[in-house]
Amino acid sequence: MDIFVVTGTHFSHPGKITSYNADERVADLAATDLVNRLRADFDPATLPPVNADNWQAGLDEVIRRHLARLGCDVRKMNDETIAAASDVDVWVEKVEAHGLSALAVDDRELATVLAALRGHQRRTCPPDLLEIATDGGRYVPLTDDEIDGLCERLNCGPLTPQDVNVVVELDGGLVEGIVADRPIKVRVVDYDVEGADPNGLVMVPQDKGNSIPAAASGWGVDSVCVDAEWITRLDAAIASEN
């Protein structure tokens, strides 16, 4: 499952503003809202709201005006230096969610989920839906009390994600293996590229929109050693040493 994370740094907000969205279009709308808040705070008279199709251009415009007001000559700055100098920004990242117990839904979608749960609770589940509720017989369906608890947690906020435990094994500064307690995908990014073959490097995007060269490698699901028992023994050894 892909989740689109929208993050913004704002004039009137002390930290980052973050939202999680299950749909890319909804994420663009959330990013547009943040950009329009920036534009309204900066100069609503000359910076009217933008729509979801051009929010990035609207963001660039307000950032350039903001830097000019701070005394920066934006004509002599490229995209990388502009991103580094600005203390306001909005960006969208797509991340893969594996084994999470959290739902990324908007209020309208949440209302439908709650209605479906209450409908499931009030009548006998037909065979086709029972197949879904049990994941093909893997689980026992939720009881009425358990559905009550689930609805309450959905109403009160996001569910707590289940922790993923990952161990990265190094030898001489090189990654020799990765152990996890479930199938996952891990990307290793090494920014120490001195002496590396330029043809083997990739441009890795950074938080502010610029990219820098790095050596990147992937450890796929098939190559990751899944050994929860070994990780438990490792944690016990670390706790004993501490």
Rank of each mutant, 00 (worst) to 15 (best):
I82R: 10
N51M: 00
V105Q: 00
H120K: 06
D23W: 10
M77R: 12
T124E: 14
G209W: 05
A68C: 06
R37S: 09
V167A: 14
E176S: 13
V221E: 13
T81Y: 07
V204A: 08
I212D: 09
H120F: 05
P205V: 04
P14D: 02
A215I: 00
I17A: 12
A97N: 04
F4A: 07
R75F: 06
L117Q: 02
L67E: 09
V168A: 12
A84D: 15
I82Q: 02
V88H: 06
V179S: 07
G136M: 06
A83Q: 03
D89R: 11
T124A: 14
A216M: 15
A115S: 11
G177H: 09
D163F: 03
Q121K: 15
D43V: 01
I82H: 08
G157K: 11
D73R: 08
P141T: 11
K185R: 12
P158L: 07
V168G: 04
R75E: 14
V202P: 03
D190V: 09
P127S: 11
E229Q: 15
A57H: 13
D41M: 01
M1T: 11
Q206V: 01
A57Q: 12
A116I: 00
N51G: 15
I238H: 01
A214K: 03
G58Y: 00
A30M: 08
G149V: 01
P198S: 05
A215M: 05
